[in-house]
Simulated scan of single mutants.
Amino acid sequence: MATYKQADYEALRRRCVELKQASWKQADIARAFGLTEGWVSQTLKTHREQGDAGLTTGKRTGAPSRLTAEQLDQLTRELAKGAEQHGFSGQVWTRPRINEVIIKLFGISYDPSQVGRLLKKVGWSRQKPARQAHQQDPQAVANWQAERLPALQKSAD
């Protein structure tokens, strides 16, 4: 199949329709433009069903979201409660964990790769967990830095 720029496809679709109306066969149209017969067939079918409006180039939107805006709001409220609130150990949210919450709340399952897209849609981003022990005592750390660390630095000299 020939390579065309996205902007050229609308003109190609229109030309395919013109040639079909001039009694060309689909195979001949495909061969003339270096297209597949399936592409030509789909173009002509779209034209039959939608008319000239079906030939225009539009942004491909993909499948509609299976969660409504209200459900997404509810999901973010639930996620804000924390992972432990939903029965997970630790406060880290992962895509599979979030998918489990979506299934539990709405009965809808997403591929984990798509959970990130949903989170981006509601303004959440990937975060790296802080590399600090959860049980760390800030006062004990300050005392160690003030008292023990200088002694260790002196002995190293």
Rank of each mutant, 00 (worst) to 15 (best):
T3Q: 13
Y110D: 00
A27F: 05
D52Y: 08
V40M: 03
W144R: 15
L118A: 00
E37F: 09
D157A: 15
K154A: 14
V101P: 01
S125Y: 12
R131V: 03
R48Y: 02
R31I: 12
D28C: 02
A30G: 01
R15W: 05
P112C: 09
D8W: 02
A32D: 10
S41N: 06
T57G: 15
T36H: 07
L152T: 09
Y110T: 02
G123P: 00
R66F: 11
Q85C: 11
E49A: 04
L19Y: 06
E84S: 10
T68E: 02
E49W: 07
A7C: 07
R48D: 03
R13P: 00
Q91I: 11
S23T: 09
R97W: 06
Y4F: 10
D73R: 08
N143K: 13
A80H: 14
A156E: 14
G34N: 12
S41D: 15
N143P: 14
K5G: 04
I102S: 00
A30Q: 00
R14I: 09
F33P: 02
A63Y: 14
W39T: 04
R48F: 03
D28K: 01
L44M: 05
G90C: 12
V122K: 01
L44V: 03
Q74I: 05
K45C: 08
D111F: 08
A140H: 09
Q127G: 14
A22W: 13
A32S: 12
T57H: 11
A140M: 11
A142M: 15
Q26T: 05
T61R: 10
R14H: 07
R148T: 08
Q50V: 06
D111V: 09
F106L: 04
Y110N: 01
R13V: 01
H134T: 08
C16T: 01
P129T: 01
R66V: 10
